[in-house]
Amino acid sequence: MDQTFVDLLARNAEHAERFESRFDDVQDAQHPAVVTVCCSDSRVLQDQMWGNDEPGRIFTCGNIGNRVVQRTAVGETVSGDVLYPIEHTGTEIAVVVGHTGCGAVTATYDALTHGVSEPDGIGHCLDLLKPHLEPGVDRLPADLSRPDSINHLVEYNVDRQVQLLRESDDVPDSVTVVGTVYDFQDVYGGRRGEIHVVNVDGETDVDRLRADHPEIDDRIDRRWEY
């Protein structure tokens, strides 16, 4: 057996020892307080970024590009994995988590500007992002470096995913939708691994957000106010 997997099992044994009694209250049902939609990038530590060690607290979804929609016979709809906790477990907070240097955003940017060839499965994911990111690509300042262009589009993508949730008839108005960026590349000037709030229920103006949410004003920031 590959040593990597052997090591994973060893770490799982440690996990099971620590967590064995923590599943007592969630044996038969779950009622997570929040659903998060994260990028599946291996650098995005989906539970650990929140310091979560409580089973049943966070319903975590992951895919490349932190997308909230899927394509169906009737068009784009909110993905079932995102919608499930909202529809069935009473979850009333949805958090979209983008991240600096996102590979899916980079690949979509390249596909829109230069054209790229990807396997069908990856291409399908990029095709879901393209129509939502294309207007952002067109609005990028001309003098931006490539890394800055990508990180501007990371915020733009988070905004679009928040918008898709807010506009969906399947997501009740009572659900709070927060857009964030997980920074491990020193883009926002905080500590690596910090979450920065860039959007709350469609509001993206930093001054308004800080006025409306003073309890988290030091965590609200944006690189691009377009």
Score class of each variant (00 low, 15 high):
P32V: 05
D25P: 02
V37P: 00
E92W: 04
V26E: 10
M49G: 03
C38W: 04
R71G: 02
G65R: 01
R57M: 12
G80V: 09
V68Y: 01
L45W: 08
V78Y: 00
A29T: 07
A29N: 05
P32S: 05
N63G: 07
A73Y: 12
E14Q: 09
I86S: 01
V78E: 01
N52L: 10
D47V: 02
Q46N: 09
V78P: 00
E17S: 12
A13E: 08
E17Y: 01
A16N: 10
I86Q: 00
S40Y: 05
G62Y: 04
P32E: 12
N63H: 11
L83S: 01
Q70K: 15
A13I: 02
M49E: 05
D47T: 08
D25N: 06
N52M: 07
Q70R: 11
I58Q: 01
V82K: 00
N66H: 15
G75N: 04
T36S: 13
V82N: 00
D28L: 13
P85W: 04
T91N: 03
V26Q: 11
P85D: 07
H88E: 07
Q46S: 13
V37F: 02
R57K: 11
L83F: 07
G65Q: 02
I93Y: 05
A73T: 08
S40V: 05
F23I: 07
Q30N: 15
R67E: 14
S21E: 14
T36V: 11
R18H: 09
A13F: 02
T60E: 15
R57G: 00
A73P: 01
V74N: 11
V37A: 04
P85A: 09
D24E: 05
P32L: 08
N12Q: 13
R43S: 06
S21N: 11
A73R: 12
E54R: 10
R22I: 02
A29R: 12
F19G: 03
V34R: 03
C61H: 04
H31K: 13
T36P: 01
N52D: 15
P32H: 07
H31P: 02
R18L: 15
R18T: 03
R67Y: 06
R43P: 01
E14R: 06
N66K: 10
G90F: 08
I58S: 03
D81F: 12
V74A: 10
V69F: 02
V68W: 00
G65C: 09
G80E: 08
G56W: 14
V78M: 03
V37R: 00
N12A: 05
S21T: 12
E54Q: 13
L45R: 04
D41S: 11
E87Q: 10
N66L: 04
E87M: 11
D47Y: 05
F59L: 03
Q27G: 09
F23C: 06
C38T: 06
R22W: 09
H31S: 13
D25A: 14
G56Q: 11
T89I: 14
Q48S: 05
T72K: 06
E76Q: 11
I86P: 00
N12T: 04
P32A: 15
R57P: 00
C61G: 01
I93G: 00
R71F: 08
S42R: 11
T60I: 06
A33T: 08
D24G: 04
R18M: 10
F23T: 03
R43M: 12
D24T: 14
